[in-house]
Simulated scan of single mutants.
Amino acid sequence: MNTGDLHLLTGAYVLHALPPEEHADFERHLPGCPSCSEEVRELAATTGKLASAVAVVPPPVLKQRVMARVAAERQAPPVVPRQSRRGGTRRGRALSRFALAASVAAAATFGSVALWQYQEAQDARDAARRTERRAADLASVLAAPDAKAVSGGFAKGATGTVVVSRTLDKAAFLASGLPNPPEGKVYQLWFADGGSMRSAGLMDVSGATGAAVMEGPLDGASGIGVTVEPAGGSAQPTSDPLALLTLPA
C-alpha cells in the first residue's frame, strides 16, 4: 500500500475497522505523519465524548448540529506527492468527512444501545425497590402489636381480610380466590367514611391472591370496600362493591 492510500485510513483506524495487514501498515505510517496523527486524535476525541454520554438523553437538536458541523467544517488535505495531489486531495477530503460522519454515527449507535441497557437495568432496580417497600409496609401492619383483623366473603367463593393497626394509622387488605379483573379493568380499594367512599389505591392480583397496604390514613373510616374500575382507577366508585368489610374497633 502506498503512502497516499494510507492517508485515507484515519476514520477506519479509529473505528477499529481495518484488516490486520492494513492496521499494521497504518500504525507504522502514523508516527511519521503529523496530519494523520492529528486527524486520528480529533476523531478519537469525538467518538470518546459521544460514547461516554451513555446515561444522558441527548437533546433532539444534537444530530442536526453534528451533521451541520460535519458539512460545514473545513477539512485539512493530507500531505501527498504532487502528482496525486489533485485527485487525492478531493478524495481524501470526501473520505475524511465520511469517516467523521461514520464515527459520529457509530458512537451514537453504541451510546443509544448502552443508554437503553442502562435504562432497562435502572427500571428493574426501581421496580425491585418498590416491591421491597410494599412488602416492608405490609409486614409492619401485619406484625403491629395492636393489629386486628376481620374477614368476609366475596362473590364466587373469594374471601377478603382487612388488618388494622391504629398506632400505625394504617390498614392492609388481603384477598384469596379473587380472579383476575376483566381486560382493561383493575381492583380498587376504598375507605368508607360515613356516607362517602375515599380511594385507598389499586390492588394487583396474582395467582388469585392479592395483598396491599391501603393508601391514606384511617381517619374516621368505618369500613373498606373493593370495586372493579377502569384501568388507572376512578375518583369515585363506578360499580357496586364486590365486598364491604367493617373495620375492627
Rank of each mutant, 00 (worst) to 15 (best):
T167K: 08
V70H: 00
A24D: 00
E229P: 12
M67Q: 03
P181E: 11
D123M: 13
G216V: 01
H23L: 15
P248W: 05
G207E: 07
N2W: 09
S140P: 03
R129W: 10
S96I: 01
A106L: 10
W116S: 15
M67G: 03
D193N: 15
V79K: 05
T227M: 02
G152Q: 12
V70W: 01
G220R: 14
A243G: 06
A192I: 05
M1W: 00
Q117H: 05
S37E: 14
P59M: 11
L43T: 07
P58Q: 00
P60F: 01
E21T: 03
G223P: 00
P78R: 06
A175L: 13
G216D: 00
Q119R: 00
W116N: 14
G88V: 09
P60C: 06
G11E: 01
E42R: 13
E42L: 13
A71C: 03
P182Q: 05
S52G: 10
P217K: 07
P145Y: 11
Q64M: 06
Q75W: 00
M214P: 15
R130M: 11
G88T: 07
S196T: 05
T131K: 02
W116T: 15
L247F: 08
A155R: 10
P31T: 09
K185Q: 14
A144V: 12
L174W: 02
Q64G: 10
G111T: 12
K148C: 11
S176M: 02
W116I: 15
A107C: 12
D123Y: 06
D126Q: 08
D146W: 12
A192Y: 01
E229Q: 14
L62M: 09
R28A: 13
L168D: 04
A71M: 04
R91K: 10
A17T: 04
A249G: 15
V226Q: 04
A124P: 02
R130Y: 04
T161K: 12
R74G: 11
T89A: 13
I224F: 08
A147S: 15
L218V: 12
F98R: 02
L168A: 12
P217R: 10
A139K: 15
V228E: 10
R166N: 11
A76L: 03
A53S: 07
R133L: 11
V61S: 09
L142Q: 15
G220I: 14
P179A: 15
P58K: 03
R198D: 04
A192V: 06
S37Q: 14
G177H: 06
L50I: 13
G194Y: 07
D137I: 07
V228I: 15
D240R: 09
A200S: 04
R129I: 12
S151G: 09
P248Y: 08
A102Y: 05
G194M: 14
S112G: 14
A211H: 02
Q188T: 11
A144T: 12
L178R: 11
L30I: 15
T46G: 06
K170S: 15
L8M: 11
L138Q: 10
A44V: 03
V163Y: 09
K148S: 13
T3Y: 01
V186W: 02
P182R: 02
G160E: 05
V66S: 08
T10D: 02
R133M: 10
G87T: 03
R125F: 12
V186K: 01
V57S: 08
R166Y: 09
A121Q: 14
L218Q: 04
T109S: 11
A128C: 07
L174F: 07
S151H: 11
